[in-house]
Design a protein around this nucleic acid. Structure first.
Length: 597
DNA sequence: AAAAAAC
């Protein structure tokens, strides 16, 4: 029988226990009738993971409706770990024993906005959001966080986050992940995807029994979360720390451009959930400072980006060529707002009989974002931007409460536009990949706090970053790919709030005309007549082609041009679709805060 | 053609 990982850590601190290999009983559970239901045992184990939250060990019955044989298989994986000094080679054991955990809920940086904070999540706007799932035996959605027993400590963190009820993607994705199923999930930007994959991972780690980490000085994370940019990894790390506060689950982040030594120290102190960018992780793997052999959960955020040409080789190396358990042994979850069919096909290499979930149209923008397209010649872009900014300033929508994010195509372009804006009296900062990590983080912070309410950015800031109070996204240069456009404008209109997106369009963007006008039509936006003419002129059918119809949620396994040999991919014909089925809308309460990011 | 991601 496999010892819980937590138990083994504790046992390592207690040589007698380790020698006998008998299950470690934490002090607060000694002298009780011996109780061995797995749920309670694992809770006790988690309590031993180094939190001093008293009352934690109170047995909490786990509603494991969906915990199937998959979960059992996973816990049984890796027979290793019968011996040895346990975690961290005798340097004090797990987390150096109940070290004081920093409270992540002190928001020192949200001062300027405190008045405005947490008002008016617009749930009604999501009432008729289309939801589609496909795959075998899809677990039904939940309506409240109470319907999912994530454990007392996580519930408390949900309360601290002021989440009142789950967002649509959370309602569907969390039960699927808790059931141990692989998942490919598409949900609109700003709809709460991070929590959707973090909660099940944290809960699974708290409840699971895991073998002892086999070697000292090597980190053996149980969960790996990969993202395409350093800032996004930081953000996910910050979120995950909140969700796992006082659960004993340790979250560590690793990314490039920052001193590796501090990250190594954090890893040595023990890690359950590792959040990383691919490059730094490969480095750590090659240095043998991290092993993936105990990974039970793999989550790719912005998964379509992670599997595109630029990243795919690194991801394959990490997932397929190192020591990570194969699909079916680990649980894999892919999340993004966009999921091109060809990437879906590629992604199925990493998944095992997965469930496809689409909440809202795949790759759709939300109709909470007002989208405008203006015809602007290349040479007129700067003065046109100036006009927009002046108009904003006159309307009083300039400043700390209304940030403007300006996307450009190149790093040089970002530098020069930033400089030009500053010269013209608009406090701006810029972020791109040629800046030092320090400069990048400073720029983002200066923008978030409203110190420089304008930020010029390359696509480094296009995905995932949650920056409250971005009122306006300007596509100074449009991207070539409509999916990139969707992610860029998704920096505004988050958490059910409205936003404005303005794009400067000219002949250079004609290849985008058709997909842009289609996207705007779907989102009930006004398409200028001249853009429709551009769209009609352009030949359509390349990469930017999107399917039609009112359901965007399309599992490529259901597309006849992809599913020859469908049995390989697609376990069954079970599919359900509905409009937020399960009475989501009946819970609508204006002004309620939610887990929307 | 550009952007991102390790040292």
């Amino acid at each position: 029988m496999a010892m819980s990982w937590a138990d083994s850590v504790s046992a390592a601190e207690n040589p007698a226990g380790a020698a006998s290999k008998s299950a470690y009983v934490p002090p607060h559970l000694r002298n009780r009738p011996s109780i061995e239901p797995p749920a309670q045992a694992s809770y006790a184990g988690a309590a031993a993971l180094g939190n001093d939250h008293s009352g934690y060990g109170v047995p909490n019955v786990v509603g494991s409706r969906w915990s199937g044989q998959r979960t059992e298989n996973r816990s049984g994986y890796v027979g290793g770990g019968g011996r040895g000094g346990g975690w961290n080679g005798g340097r004090g054991g797990w987390d150096r024993g109940r070290e004081r955990e920093v409270n992540p809920f002190t928001e020192e940086d949200s001062e300027p906005f405190s008045e405005q904070e947490s008002s008016g999540i617009n749930f009604d706007a999501y009432e008729d959001i289309p939801v589609e799932t496909s795959g075998d035996n899809v677990p039904p959605p939940v309506n409240t966080f109470a319907d999912i027993d994530l454990g007392e400590a996580v519930n408390e963190n949900i309360r601290r986050c002021k989440y009142v009820k789950p967002t649509p993607v959370q309602r569907h994705a969390i039960p699927i992940s808790l059931a141990g199923r692989d998942l490919m999930a598409c949900a609109q930007t700003g709809s709460g995807k991070t929590a959707a994959f973090c909660f099940p991972i944290i809960s699974g780690i708290m409840r699971g029994h895991f073998p002892r980490p086999p070697r000292p000085r090597v980190a053996f994370p149980l969960a790996l979360i990969l993202s395409p940019t350093r800032e996004l990894s930081c953000q996910i790390h910050d979120e995950a720390k909140k969700f796992s506060y006082q659960t004993g689950v340790r979250v560590v982040v690793a990314y490039g451009g920052a001193p590796i030594n501090q990250q190594l120290r954090e890893l040595e102190r023990g890690v359950h959930i590792l959040v990383a960018t691919p490059g730094r992780l490969v480095d750590l793997l090659e240095r043998a400072r991290v092993s993936l052999q105990m990974i039970r959960y793999l989550a790719l955020d912005e998964a379509d980006r992670m599997l595109d040409m630029g990243f795919e080789p690194q991801i394959r190396k990490i997932v397929q060529q190192m020591d990570m358990p194969p699909p079916g042994v680990r649980q894999t979850m892919l999340f993004s707002a966009t999921f091109p069919k060809e990437i879906q096909r590629l992604a199925s290499d990493f998944l095992s009989s997965y469930i496809f979930l689409a909440v809202g149209r795949v790759g759709s923008s939300t109709d909470l974002i007002v989208q405008r397209v203006e015809y602007v010649q290349e040479t007129d872009k700067r003065s046109h931007l100036m006009d927009l900014l002046h108009a904003q300033r006159e309307n009083g929508v300039h400043g700390k409460q209304a940030l403007t994010l300006v996307f450009v195509e190149t790093k040089k372009g970002a530098d020069s536009l930033e400089h030009w804006l500053c010269m013209n009296g608009f406090p701006a900062t810029a972020i791109h990949g040629d800046r030092t990590q320090q400069e990048r983080e400073y720029a983002l912070r200066s923008f978030k706090t409203g110190h420089t309410p304008i930020m010029v950015a390359t696509d480094v800031a296009a995905r995932g970053l949650d920056i409250p109070h971005v009122a306006h996204v300007v596509n100074f240069d449009l991207p070539n790919d409509i999916d990139d456009y969707v992610h860029r404008i998704g920096r505004t209109g988050r958490a059910g709030k409205s936003g404005l997106a303005t794009a400067f369009f000219n002949e250079n963007n004609s290849s985008l005309a058709r997909s842009l006008s289609d996207l705007m039509t779907e989102a009930n936006q006004e398409v200028p007549a001249w853009l429709s003419r551009f769209a009609a002129r352009s030949n359509y059918g390349g990469k930017n082609r999107r399917g039609g119809g009112r359901f965007g949620g399309r599992d490529f396994r259901r597309d006849s041009s992809y599913n020859r040999g469908a049995a390989d991919y697609y376990g069954g014909a079970n599919m359900s679709s509905g409009y937020a089925s399960g009475g989501y809308s009946s819970h609508g309460a204006a002004g309620v805060t939610s887990a929307w990011d």
